[in-house]
Amino acid sequence: MHTTEAQNSEIPLMEVKDLTVEFKQRHGRNLRAVNKASFGLYAGKTLALVGESGSGKSTIVKTLGKLIKIDGGSVALAGKPVKNYRHTFEYRQQVQLVFQDPFASLNPVHTVFHHLARPLLLHGKADKKNVRDKVEELLEKVKLTPAAELANKYPHELSGGQRQRVAIARAIAPNPKVLLADEPVSMLDVSIRLEILNLLDELRQKENLAILYVTHDLTTARHFSSSIIVMHKGDIVESGDTDAIVLAPGHPYTQLLLNSSPKKNLTKEELGKERSERLAGKVSAAMKQSLYTNKGCNFIDRCPYAKEVCTAAPGYFTVGSDNTHKAKCWLYEPNSRQ
C-alpha cells in the first residue's frame, strides 16, 4: 500500500516551483507566508505537508486551490502552467479541496443530496435523470450507507466523521486528479480519523489520485504518505521519503517535532517519567516567536546547534546518502561536516 521508490524518475502531476505568497500588513512590510516552496504531487501518491502552526501550510493549499493568487514562482498541472484567476472552472474539475472543519464546510440549509448533486451536474458527471443514482453511488464510495437514507439528511443530523465523508464525496464528485486535504481529520477522534484516512488511501489507489495531505500530526503522516515536506515559518525546511524523515530527521525543527510527538509503546514507567518531568516544568516553556525577522535561518532562536554561519540563509543540502532527502540547514553543508 505504500510506495517508497524514488519519485524523481517520474513526472509530477502537479509541479510547484519556488512558490511565494505574501500578505500585505497594515504595519510594516509584507508578510511572506510562503517562501520559494518547491515540490511535486504524483498520481497515486500522497505527499504529507507537516509543520508549525502558522508556517504557511493552508496558504499553500489555498494557492494551489486558486483561492489566493501567487506572488512568485510557478505551478504547473499536467505540464501546463497554471495562471492566476484563469480557467478556474476546468482547473476546479481537476483539483479539489477538503478542509479541516466538517462543521463549517457544509451548508446547514441543504441536504446531503443537494451538496453532491450540484458538483455532479455542474461538471457534467450526471444529468437530471440519473443524478439520484449518481449521488448514491458517490455516497457508497465514501461508505455512507444506507445511501438513499443518508442523501436526505441535513448536516446537523450527521456526526463529525459523517460530515467529513460528505465533504470528501463532494470533492471527488467531479472526478478530480488532485485532492488537496487541509487537516481533514484534525477535529475527529482516533477511530473516525483512521476511518477517513483509510478511505482517502483507498480512493488514492482506486482513482489514482494525487493527494496533498496537510496535517500537524506526524504519526498519521507516517502511515498515510509516501513522502513528507516539513514547513517552518514559510520555509520548506526538510523534504524526503516518509521513512527517512521520521526515522532519520535532518533539520533540527523536524527533530523537535518528532521528539514532541506522543510516543506509543512507552512502558508505564517511561510514560510516568516523561509525565513527571513535564509536571515538574523541566521541559522548558520558553519560546520566542520572532516573526520572519531573521535574514538567516528562521529557526536560529530555538536551534540547539545554532552557530555563526546560521545568520546567513542556508540552502538545501542532502541529508545522509539519499539524495531525495534534503534539509534547509547548514548542518548538512558538505564542507561543514566533520
Partner: peptide, 19 residues
C-alpha cells in the same frame, strides 16, 4: 481500547484501526 488505538509513530506501517 482507546489507549490501544493511539497510532504508533515509529511502528511498522500497516493498516490502522480504531475500536
Amino acid at each position: 481500547g482507546i489507549m490501544a488505538s493511539i497510532p504508533d509513530l515509529y511502528g511498522e506501517r500497516k493498516e490502522l484501526h480504531g475500536i
